[in-house]
Design a protein around this nucleic acid. Structure first.
Lengths: 156, 156
DNA sequence: CTTGAAATACATGCGGC
DNA sequence: GCCGCATGTATTTCAAG
């Protein structure tokens, strides 16, 4: 972890961010290295926590999840217990993909949410989100299109 | 694709969203099914496009990427060529993780951006983002903390 | 780091249920 | 449809150069 990443490490990370299930042999070939040191580097970076894990990415539309939205949320009081209570509740809602505490005058949280349709969204808003203690304001923006939607971090 | 997902399919998808590099044997065991039908189902769902792919998730902090921000962007004119030119330019910037075209009176795009620090952010804003033709306004929100940050879609 | 070999574990197809 | 076995393949891992 105290070591710097060399060219091979960066190539490995870039490749794994695109093809998480690639075999070590293919990976080695792709970066022009032999399998042994390649695997050793991957293991090292996993150990070091550089690689958090591997996941499958699903197709939202094919799953019937047609509505994505970002929701800015304002809290009434800025106390630690208000915030952690909110976060704990939110953590139980599968439609919430992301929850970020953010700077900005108008909002405290930014949520990324995905649901089947407008009905489901309304349900989420009325039955779940606005019923959470401390939520004083919500502002929704619906996603029309996502020309870029990547999980890959710039590695350099 | 016209078929509905049964209990096994859902278990498979949920598992793969958490452990993308799990072997078919382990996966089969985890969902209490034998390897043969398990693999068949996975392959089917890959074919059907339900599974978009597999990726490694990296640790931003360990990579030295300490600053994440959401940027709301307004465009001067709402013409198709303005929008596609913007999207094409943005696509070449590695610090842009996501770009969403959104509804809302104040903004047209919402960007998720990650950089090393404030200096890099300033560089990105001044050298790249605000120099794009048509960008008439930007509003940044910095991420202080992300209690939820998942790629896993609700599957039901 | 590379090469090569050995052991392990895996995916996959087939017959039976 | 699922199970379990058998087979062939691929991968990891270790040793030596």
């Amino acid at each position: 972890m105290t070591e710097e990443l060399d060219r091979y490490d960066r190539l490995i990370l870039e490749t794994l961010q695109k093809r998480g299930r690639i075999t070590n042999q293919e990976l080695a070939e792709a970066i022009s290295l032999s399998p042994s040191p390649c695997l050793r580097r991957v293991k090292q970076m996993e150990e070091a926590g550089l690689i958090d894990g591997y996941v499958a990415l699903l197709n939202a539309r094919k799953l019937g999840l047609h509505l994505m939205a970002f929701i800015e949320i304002s809290m009434d009081k800025h106390t630690p217990d208000r915030f952690s209570a909110f976060e704990d509740t939110i953590a139980g809602y599968p439609e919430v993909l992301e929850c970020h505490l953010i700077t900005g005058q108008s909002a405290d949280y930014l949520l990324k949410v995905i649901v089947r349709d407008m009905d489901a969204y309304q349900q989420f808003l009325l039955q779940k989100l606005t019923r959470i203690e401390g939520v004083s304001g919500v502002h929704s923006s619906f996603v029309l299109k996502s020309p870029i939607n990547s999980t890959a971090l710039p590695v350099s």
